[in-house]
Design a protein around this nucleic acid. Structure first.
Lengths: 346, 346
DNA sequence: TTGAAAGCGCTAACAC
DNA sequence: GTGTTAGCGCTTTCAA
């Protein structure tokens, strides 16, 4: 009942163990005909390589690490799911690890982790993937990695990546609000140590500019990706002499905080104020009203990154790829109340 | 830089490799004095056992599996955290796996998983842990496991477990509502394939009975542990000729659905209706108002279960242990509005 | 393009 | 109590 061994396959296919090993690992130097025979034997015996033996014997453990520094449970689960899908498909193991992306010893911590488990490489998610100095050290340690990062274009630098166009997605959300007729749109920023925060802010600014709406400092509130900052930030916006008619929170948790603040202030969403988030966590569907947001397929993105990483480890480089989160309109956004007449451009 | 090997430690301590192995694995038959010497050498060399070699060589891989069939991201993350804490402390690896607890092939799926990775044992969370027939098969396959289950008392059957007293916790929540003066208390049930649902229902009934409040069929609504069922169930309650003044949702997601339904119906929580949940997910703090709930320390519970499992694998059985989730009162519950005079007992 | 031999770091089984 | 020997299933030389 235990899985067949490499030797079993070898004798069944009438070749040596080493040849089977070559086929399993996709090495070139096997005659197609031989490869066929081996593959058939593998199929028939239901052979699956023993990761422990591979790892013990080889230069690396045929296992990749997924690194994150993120408190968002939904996001983590989605990423794990994506990484697992790729690893299962490619016969790799997966190790999961949190880290402190702001630690000065980040690169050393990751190196220890890699060496201890003899990992083949790392998938680095934001914001770990944005610590440039640490990345250079990792490269110097000869640790393969693929980054997931926030960028409007392929950075096309020395390190491979999957890039997510947060700017364009934020632009789409703010455009949606502008098209509904909103002019005063509050922006609750995310933590400064995420590059995505700056990108989303750019998207916000670009959209306003494109629609000819002047930027107002008092409508842009600093904060972090947490409920409480969304709550406090929104309250500050509501307290303005001329409060915004719409608020864009840099992620769903911030938006949920803003929603709570609106409710606490006796405001009706979306009639008194529209609120939009970012991420499409289940969270955004579980509020009332449900949140307009940008669907970020963390599972797909991480699966892609993991496949890129494993390909690289196997010696086949794959080109960088980009994703753009997609606007999802729900009940939390609606046209502003027609108090006084509002200009609507374009 | 790579970790020292067992042989390194052995030669440093002036003993054989096997003796070091014995010390590392906590076997009895080592003279304290020898053990001391070995431990010192381990310390000095910063030795950490190579899990791959252990697994390849030994009867099992010194790795346990955490099995769940649960869509709740917060819950999963908390469980992973707890399992990881225990595994790190005890030098075990951890593999994480979802499964379909209702599959007829559950036991076979788990066996394949265990054999493929040569796992040492499994931590089974609800509802996987409640599939009695599959459990018996696992035991027949000689796969060690520890269950986490919902029970008011130690079941004291043939299989080890950590038991969570959902009944008592539900009793506490309903008592809290009764003490506030609520008499008509709606109950939104959780999915029938979770034993916890039945336990929480019992707690609800027990509390009503204890306070002399008659049970009303129309206040108890069937459903599953999802937002939509909470929403729909609450709406049915609001539509009653005499709607409840309080609602107890079987978990936080159900309660969030009820909260949304209240808001959609223009009801103010807690002034028009009180709502309580169960679980203390971050979720319950991120709604408005925040939810009264029962704090279920999934991380602590799973850590305990994992430690029990590893102890058993090492041959030292540990007694079953129970936990009771603790009432957390937040803004979503308050005394009912004094419409007409309400009897208050006890 | 393929194969033979050696060994990864550890534990099992058995000796002493 | 402690040491010895063999071998887990695979990859890495290196040779054919």
């Amino acid at each position: 009942m235990e899985s067949a061994t490499l030797d079993d396959v070898a004798s069944k296919a009438g070749v040596s163990a080493k040849t089977v090993s070559r086929v399993v690992n996709g090495e070139r130097s096997v005659r197609p005909q031989t490869r066929e025979r081996v593959l058939r034997a593998i199929e028939q015996l239901g052979y699956r390589p023993n990761l422990l033996a591979r790892g013990l014997s080889g230069a690396h453990a045929y296992t990749v690490g997924l690194i994150y520094d993120n408190p968002n449970a939904y996001y983590i689960i989605a990423m794990q799911q994506g990484a697992l899908t790729a690893c299962d498909a490619l016969n790799f193991g997966l190790q999961i690890r949190t880290c402190n992306s702001r630690s000065p010893a980040l690169a050393e911590d990751l190196r220890n982790f890699v060496h201890r488990s003899r990992l083949s490489g790392l998938v680095l998610t934001t914001p770990v993937s944005e610590r440039a100095a640490s990345l250079r050290k990792l490269a110097a340690y000869d640790i393969p990695f693929v980054r997931i990062l926030s960028a409007a274009d392929d950075p096309d630098d020395e390190f491979p990546c999957v890039y997510v166009d947060d700017r364009d997605a934020a632009y789409a959300i703010v455009s949606h609000l502008l098209q509904l007729g909103h002019v005063r749109i509050g922006f609750l920023q995310g933590g400064k140590h995420h590059h995505a925060s700056a990108e989303r802010l750019k998207g916000y600014k670009d959209a306003l500019q494109h629609y000819g709406v002047p930027l107002r400092k008092e409508l842009m509130i600093a904060g972090d990706y947490v409920f409480d900052d969304g709550f406090r930030g929104a309250r500050r916006l509501f307290d303005l002499a001329e409060p915004p008619t719409a608020i864009f929170g840099c992620n769903d948790e911030i938006a949920a905080g803003a929603l709570a603040a609106a409710q606490a202030a006796g405001l009706h969403v979306p009639y008194d104020v529209s609120i939009a988030g970012f991420e499409d966590s289940p969270f955004s569907r579980h509020s009332w009203p449900p949140l307009t947001t940008a669907r970020q397929r963390a599972d797909v993105i991480v699966e892609r990154a993991t496949r890129m990483l494993i390909s690289r480890i196997n010696g086949n480089d794959i080109e960088n790829e980009g994703f753009t989160p997609e606007l999802v309109v729900r009940g939390s956004t609606a046209p502003p109340r027609p108090k006084r007449r509002q200009r609507k451009r374009r």
